[in-house]
Amino acid sequence: MSGNTGSDDEEIITACLQGDRDRFSVLVDRYKGLVYSVAYRLTGDQDKANDAAQECFISAYIHLCDFRFGSKFSTWLYTIVLNKCRDQLRQEKDMLSVDDIAAVRPSEAPDPEQEAVRREVRDDIQRALDALPPDYREVLVLKHIQGLEFQEISRIAGASVSALKVRAHRGRELLRAVMEKAGMNHG
């Protein structure tokens, strides 16, 4: 990320609140990489990540007057995108599984070629993360990919630092097991 400051973000937020809608694009440009990366690592799908990331910025714009000046804009965005991804995963769980649908309507099964391309795009990290429960995935993504401190993750995820550390320990253990099973360990 660039060398922008919190006060620079706040100046843009103030302009947006005063009706300068176009200035919001500066914030989108500045934080889209961060938001999209988190959304992709949590959902494991490019289309879903794109939806969640767009929804995140739209929610942020609509609720901009609730932003707490003095806090980091990025922390606020992390909170929003995390909730968007949680909603998306929850909705998926409530829907029929792909196997259920395929059993009823075989003609609408995904094109094998498209599926192969989609799988190829996924890197080792994503394949390993996809195998973890969402709670563990969240904390590993924020801690080890985004490099955040537990205090900040606590504000974002709405959980205590001690609970998050337990999730991180278990998540790392699970990740190791997944990698060993998939032959991804190097030594």
Binding site: V28, Y36, N50, F57, G187
Partner: peptide, 28 residues
């Protein structure tokens, strides 16, 4: 082995945002 798992995550490359992302958000 734990180190391998953590290094895998820490070595994640930044992902490229879909083209036209900002314009799509601004339109919505």
């Amino acid at each position: 082995s734990l180190n391998d798992a953590v290094r895998l995550l820490e070595g994640a490359k930044p992902l490229e945002t879909p083209a036209d992302f900002t314009r799509q958000v601004m339109q919505r």
